[in-house]
Structure formats: structure tokens, C-alpha cells
Simulated scan of single mutants.
Amino acid sequence: MNTQVRSGEDVHIPFRSGRYFCVGRDWYFTTREGFDSGPFASRERAELGLKRFLHVIKLLPEKQKMH
């Protein structure tokens, strides 16, 4: 991975811990499959978003679920 930053570029790598991470003021959640969802206004909203996502996934027929 190239870690060089060109002059004038603002590179911000988000801090990630567990399923939730923040970029600036925006919150996101990530799934085991590597899907990131957001932005959400707060961590609490991101947690609710993940709960809703998991609920929808449980409703899908088995062959339509992400692997």
C-alpha cells in the first residue's frame, strides 16, 4: 500500500473499532461482508441502522443472503 500523500491532499483514515466508525462528524457501521453503511448523525443512529439492517437480512430467503 502506498502511504505517500501528495502536496495539497487531505487524507483522513477513519478510526475503526468493532462495527462502528466515525469520519469527521458522521458515523457508519460495517458488516462482516465488508459493507459500510452511513452516514448517520450519531453512533446511536448507526447502531439503530445496523439493527434494522440485520432484521432485514433475517427476513431474506436463505439463497438471497450475503455470503
Rank of each mutant, 00 (worst) to 15 (best):
17 S>N: 12
42 S>V: 01
34 G>Y: 00
51 K>A: 13
30 T>R: 13
40 F>T: 01
35 F>E: 14
47 E>P: 04
27 W>A: 00
30 T>Q: 07
9 E>P: 00
41 A>C: 07
27 W>M: 05
21 F>M: 14
38 G>H: 06
22 C>H: 00
18 G>L: 09
42 S>L: 06
52 R>G: 03
54 L>W: 02
17 S>Q: 11
22 C>V: 01
23 V>Y: 00
46 A>R: 00
10 D>E: 14
27 W>Q: 00
2 N>S: 13
1 M>I: 06
13 I>W: 14
6 R>V: 10
9 E>H: 10
20 Y>H: 01
23 V>S: 09
15 F>G: 06
3 T>Y: 12
59 L>A: 11
57 I>D: 14
23 V>K: 03
65 K>F: 11
44 E>I: 12
36 D>Y: 12
16 R>G: 07
38 G>I: 02
11 V>M: 12
12 H>T: 09
21 F>A: 03
12 H>I: 08
32 R>W: 06
8 G>S: 14
38 G>P: 01
5 V>Q: 10
57 I>A: 13
7 S>L: 15
24 G>W: 07
9 E>R: 04
23 V>F: 08
12 H>Y: 02
57 I>M: 15
36 D>W: 09
35 F>W: 15
12 H>A: 11
51 K>P: 02
19 R>A: 11
42 S>R: 05
64 Q>E: 12
4 Q>L: 13
5 V>G: 09
23 V>C: 11
39 P>T: 03
26 D>V: 02
41 A>D: 05
12 H>L: 08
38 G>Q: 02
13 I>A: 14
64 Q>I: 06
10 D>P: 01
30 T>L: 05
63 K>R: 13
43 R>Y: 09
13 I>F: 15
47 E>F: 04
48 L>C: 09
65 K>R: 15
11 V>E: 15
18 G>K: 05
64 Q>V: 09
36 D>S: 14
65 K>Y: 09
42 S>N: 06
47 E>H: 03
37 S>N: 08
30 T>E: 09
44 E>A: 11
35 F>V: 10
5 V>S: 14
25 R>C: 09
4 Q>T: 13
32 R>D: 12
54 L>F: 05
9 E>V: 01
25 R>K: 08
63 K>T: 12
14 P>K: 03
27 W>D: 01
13 I>N: 13
57 I>K: 12
9 E>M: 10
9 E>I: 01
20 Y>V: 00
60 L>Q: 15
26 D>L: 07
59 L>G: 09
15 F>H: 08
37 S>A: 15
37 S>D: 13
18 G>R: 03
34 G>P: 10
11 V>A: 11
47 E>D: 07
8 G>D: 14
51 K>N: 10
46 A>Q: 03
41 A>V: 08
14 P>L: 02
17 S>I: 03
6 R>I: 09
40 F>Q: 01
30 T>A: 12
46 A>V: 06
14 P>V: 09
18 G>S: 05
24 G>S: 10
13 I>K: 12
52 R>I: 07
34 G>F: 02
16 R>L: 15
15 F>D: 03
55 H>Y: 14
28 Y>C: 00
15 F>L: 08
49 G>N: 04
47 E>L: 05
54 L>N: 04
54 L>K: 02
47 E>Y: 02
42 S>G: 04
33 E>D: 15
19 R>Q: 07
5 V>F: 11
